[in-house]
Design a protein around this nucleic acid. Structure first.
Lengths: 337, 337
DNA sequence: TTTGCGATTGCAAACGTTTGCAAAACTAAA
DNA sequence: TTTAGTTTTGCAAACGTTTGCAATCGCAAA
């Protein structure tokens, strides 16, 4: 009903100038105690709240940091966002979340929106479709600090916060081997996704270091529930089927498990399954899914902290890359050893 | 590097006034074609983008709509947000998402932030802790249009977008009855959560309309995975255990299923299980979970559309309540009939 | 009574944009 | 050349805030 109270309103009712009110509210030493008391009292009474828009204009800097993620529906991204929010709120920043929906054009629009709204900085995880980074370069050239996390652009100098996907995959596959698997298949992401590529590299390295020959038949590009089902059926119909499956993410792993169950194949006795992400799913399946915990919340806090640093003191040198630790979460879908 | 280009910059290089540039960019009829061409060309060359902050200040209205949800990590809220974003983006609005984390104080801070940033309007689903609505009243009194969805404040006049929780629960329980269950237990939410209350009412109504006596032993407050496990164990140890369980949400239902499985009780043969939400989980469990689809995406689009209406032409009369359809998604955890 | 000084306060400009109104420039008719 | 339009442009204020600088006030020292 009543429109918003401004400093001018307070000034007018008190018969003083706006500058005095402004200073009084900030407890400036030049202002007499009596005036301060008067102003503060009235401000409280009228429920005065500073207009962040006006402040942003004045300072040519907003208190908003932007986030672009493929989809918040994914447990991993949700946890990263929670981490980001925590750090941002504590530093007095708001968070503006944008979803690219894995769509390149949408990502461009998101970037535009952040620019138009003069976000103080941005935290970005790029979409699967994104191979051209002009929109991000434009953002950076406008002077906006950028920090990329998890899905980072390759060949674009900037700050990165990631997990060591290769190492994490390596450890996951090593665990399968240690627990007795010898014929390990890999349900992989398309190579265009950098993190998928690294995970595949870790898979191969682990085989190699354990003197297990790499078998092309065991490597199938399948990074969704549906694709995993088909791929798994194909795998199990090979003359020598695998006894372990390492999937590039949890949903893919679950697709594999569902198919194995339909085929009456015991998990983990006949075929062990390892996922990647330790999302909310992995607790809930039957059997529960062993996976790689990516520590999304920590990734969020670290990335946000780095961004706030860059906002305070702009980057001069080359970009920094922060690695977040991962660890295996061993559940029922893999064998003990 | 280069800071952001303004209308003044264009004006200066072209030796004309800022107002002319402004009008030229908006294709105002007063401006000659030559000037327009000159301005547009330079604007494109310099990559001019209007400063949304300045615009917001001028218009005393931002192009941002705020969203407050308990947690984006929940599939349901994520889908609602997607629906909101779609409508908002199409109308040229940005979306600022805030999580209360089911925390009352945080919700107040979120509301504050939306006010300070002069959001054009807000879409709100209240936290479990929230029983006092002063912060929301303050928001509304400031003139900000508010639309509540799913978790709406009771006794606070405003626009609501909800599902008919009672009816949805009624239908879910009726299906259990129709498929042969006669002793149906209910894992309920605390009554303080309005939607939980309605769902319990629907449960009781369904029993009543089918001449099944209400049994207090079969009604347990348990609305989490862990609580459901304990509650289910207790239920199955009753002298006459239930043959069907209706859970207030999916995660609770899954907790129940896990326990039933541990106890070696066949689902749905011995005990059928019905969830509520049709989240991403329900597809993935073994057996897959029958549930109530709340159509979160549609709830999001409808709520956002209503809010945009209210922004354009402020509400005068009493609040409107929009009901979103629900439907049963029947999967493996309930019997066919 | 003047001068000087500290303590308070106010003026005005600035951030980037829009817009009513006035002014200038041009065109064409007288 | 003057007059009257018409077209095109610029001035200035406004949105809410901050801040350097100038102004005012009271009061004590000279």
């Amino acid at each position: 009903m009543n429109s918003q109270v401004t400093i001018k309103d307070i000034a007018k009712t008190l018969g003083i100038s706006a500058s005095t009110v402004s200073r009084a509210l900030k407890n400036h030493p030049d202002i007499s105690k009596e005036t301060k008391d008067l102003v503060n009292e009235l401000a409280k009474k009228l429920r005065y709240k500073p207009n962040a828009v006006a402040l942003s204009l004045k300072n040519s800097k907003t208190n908003t940091i932007g986030v672009i993620v493929p989809e918040i529906i994914h447990y991993f991204f949700s946890t990263v966002i929670s981490g980001i929010e925590k750090v941002a709120y504590e530093a007095g920043y708001n968070v503006m979340i944008c979803q690219s929906n894995e769509n390149y054009e949408r990502e461009i629009i998101n970037a535009q929106a952040l620019f138009s709204n003069r976000a103080a900085g941005a935290l970005i995880s790029i979409s699967k479709q994104t191979t051209d980074f002009a929109h991000l370069e434009t953002l950076e050239e406008s002077g906006m600090p950028l920090v990329f996390f998890d899905r980072v652009p390759e060949g674009f100098e900037s700050d990165h916060v990631v997990i060591d996907d290769k190492k994490a995959a390596y450890n996951a596959v090593c665990h399968l081997i240690d627990s007795g698997c010898r014929r390990i298949a890999h349900l992989a992401a398309a190579d265009s996704l950098v993190i998928g590529k690294y995970r595949s590299q870790g898979y191969k390295q682990a085989l190699n270091d354990n003197n297990i020959p790499y078998n092309e038949d065991y490597m199938i590009v399948a990074d969704s529930f549906e694709l995993a089902a088909a791929a798994t059926r194909k795998l199990m119909q090979l003359p020598i089927p695998p006894d372990g499956i390492f999937a590039v993410n949890d949903l893919t792993a679950i697709g594999a498990m569902k198919t194995l169950q339909k085929m009456g194949i015991a998990i983990p006795e006949k075929v062990a399954v390892m996922g990647f992400s330790a999302g909310s799913f992995s607790d809930i399946t039957t059997p529960t899914l062993s996976s790689v915990d990516q520590h999304g919340y920590e990734m969020g806090t670290r990335a946000a902290t780095l961004l706030l640093d860059r906002i305070k003191t702009p980057k001069t040198g080359p970009g920094e890359t922060i690695f977040i630790n991962t660890n295996l979460v061993l559940r029922e879908s893999t064998k003990k050893f």
